[in-house]
């Protein structure tokens, strides 16, 4: 599997670490416990098909990436810098 990092280019998957679903990009605002926190920390779908995940390019540019990929075919469909997604530049 190869991932095309927006900064580094096409790279081998051994340079990356997956963190999990893109839910991690949307931390709840409230300080106390709530169903939103339960969802943020624990509740995940396990789709056979297209999903969006956070990947860390630790052996490259050290950027966090949002990767859209197909869990059935292992196709990588889209890769963006998480910082761009957060700032609305993606």
């Amino acid at each position: 599997m190869r991932i095309k990092c927006p900064l580094c280019g096409d790279r081998d998957s051994r340079e990356f670490t997956p963190m999990g679903h893109e839910t991690y990009m949307n931390r709840p605002d409230d300080e106390g416990w709530s169903p939103a926190w339960d969802n943020y920390l624990h509740l995940r779908d396990n789709p056979a098909g297209i999903t969006r995940e956070m990947w860390y390019h630790g052996a490259g540019c050290t950027s966090w990436l949002r990767v859209e990929r197909d869990t059935v075919t292992h196709d990588i469909l889209r890769v963006e810098l998480a910082v761009d997604v957060k700032r609305g530049n993606a």
Partner: peptide, 19 residues
């Protein structure tokens, strides 16, 4: 390293972080 260092791709002055 998994980098593509083929001379047509990785030229003098190019730099990369990898393993």
């Amino acid at each position: 390293t998994p980098l593509d260092l083929n001379p047509g791709v990785f030229k003098t002055g190019h730099a990369a972080r990898s393993q």
